[in-house]
Write a protein that binds this DNA or RNA. Structure first.
Length: 400
RNA sequence: GCGUCGGUGGUAGAGUGGUCAAUUACACCUGACUGUAAAUCAGGCGCCUAUAUGGCUUCGUUGGUUCAAGUCCAACCCGGCGCA
């Protein structure tokens, strides 16, 4: 992997290109999430039609099913799914959170105000599905409850087998409700794990075919975030290798999220790419670009699509609303996505959702991914003209 | 005609004297979703009220028994089945 920065935009923003063995990524770029080596409800041909540049799969999910050894036999997850473009894998670090502290609650990595923890029906027990110790994490499979052990070294091995162009160090994603003391402890542990990831990566991949990104933690605390960024940027393997890029991980409060991102990016080496992990919604992404992030992934676009919500420039619309039943409008006038250009009416898509037809999910997922990728593309255009801030403000004015 | 079983909220279908404005599912209405435990989850769903452990009207119809009826009795209306 090689990263070229073409142009600085504002205080922190930058336009660039990431060169990977499987093609270039024009940055800033939205990373399409394909957790199980598939973007839910889409074929690879359809993914391509959404202007997606890069697909991110997940270590934990593919390790459990079908198993990273199986995926390796197919030549890695990109070949397995027939995606020939750039790829990434997440390390399983997010599952430390989602199956650990967050399991059975409605807590997400972005907290808004004082979140109340409503019990979800999805948890069959209140027991956590992930427990952490210095060496690694013991997971229970969400599929069958069986026990599995991840360590930094194991995550590197699995990600090597999965074969993405860019991979992440195994970290601990913390809850937004964790205390400062806990954030500090988790951050230090993530740093120790980072060193182990680099060492293992040297051993598995001496030619460094895969780029390895280190992950920043520290919650919402400035001194922790800054220290984490400095430490992760400086950490070095026994053989002297360092991270090729960085993930900004952990959790956020909606209100100060981009303050935190700015602190981190100010500490990170300018010339290496930064990926804001798990963020975000359209307005978040434009902020992330302004604050100097080059990559960002988020499940929201595809998940809300499956749940019947479509992005428009005016905000999301819920296709299940009674008013959609008779609507002959397309999802968004002027949209260039396959769904809108084909001419599918809202009323037809509403019918597909209500009758539980599988194509419903595909049609709206294509629309939402195209919407995001197209928005980022337009924002890159605005960056070239040095008017990203204005572009963002105009977008926010209409979007709510 | 005789016998028999049955008629419950948008639908299916629980409930057989009080804890029933009525289990549950589906449908319907609304909301949530931020490195995917997610084609998921939450709330609402007779009427009134800003709320309720609040008021009002409901379980084919009418009348009755009872302190109390969706639940018991009678007649009637409607439907299924059996025999003529």
């Amino acid at each position: 992997m090689k990263f070229d920065i073409h142009q600085r935009v504002g205080e922190r923003g930058r336009l660039g290109t990431i060169h990977t063995p499987h093609g270039d990524i024009q940055t800033p770029a939205y990373v399409t999430v394909g957790t199980k080596a598939t973007v839910k409800s889409l074929t690879v041909e359809q993914i391509k039609q959404t202007k997606s540049q890069v697909v991110l799969a997940n270590t934990y999910h593919l390790y459990l099913e079908p198993g990273d050894e199986v995926v390796k036999e197919f030549g890695g997850f990109p070949k397995f799914m027939q995606w020939d473009g750039p790829t990434m894998t997440d390390s399983g670090g997010f599952q430390v959170f989602s199956l650990g502290e967050a399991f059975g609650t409605n807590v997400s990595k972005v907290a808004a105000g004082e979140p109340q923890q409503i019990e979800s029906k999805r948890n069959t027990s209140t027991q956590k599905m992930a427990t952490i110790d210095e060496e690694g994490v013991t997971f229970k499979s969400y599929k069958d409850g069986s026990s599995h052990r991840f360590t930094p070294e194991r995550s590197m091995e699995i990600q090597w087998n999965l074969g993405a162009d860019m991979i992440f160090a195994f970290d601990e994603c913390t809850s937004p409700h964790a205390s400062e003391e806990y954030q500090l402890a988790a951050m230090d542990r993530t740093l120790r794990w980072a060193k182990r990831c680099l060492d293992k990566h040297d051993e598995l991949d001496p030619e460094s075919k895969q780029a390895l990104f280190g992950v920043i933690q520290g919650g919402r605390h400035k001194h922790l975030r800054e220290k984490s960024a400095r430490d992760i940027a400086a950490v070095m393997s026994d053989k002297g290798s360092q991270f090729d890029g960085f993930g900004i991980g952990g959790s956020f409060n909606k209100d100060d999220m981009f303050g935190v991102v700015g602190w981190v990016n100010d500490m990170l080496p300018f010339e290496k790419p930064r990926h804001l992990l798990g963020i975000g919604e359209p307005t978040d992404i434009l902020k992330a670009m302004e604050e100097g992030c080059d990559l960002f992934d988020c499940v929201t676009a595809s998940r809300i699509a499956r749940n019947g919500n479509a992005y428009t420039r005016q905000g999301t619309i819920n296709i299940f609303n009674a008013s959609m039943k008779n609507s002959k409008e397309i999802l968004e006038v002027g949209c260039g996505c396959p769904t809108c250009t084909t001419g599918y009416a809202r009323g037809y898509i509403a019918h597909l959702f209500r009758s539980k037809e599988m194509s419903a999910a595909s049609l709206v997922t294509m629309h939402n991914l195209y919407f995001i990728n197209n928005l980022v593309e337009e924002a890159r255009g605005a960056m070239m003209e040095n008017r990203l801030g204005q572009f963002r403000e105009e977008f926010e004015k209409r979007y709510n």
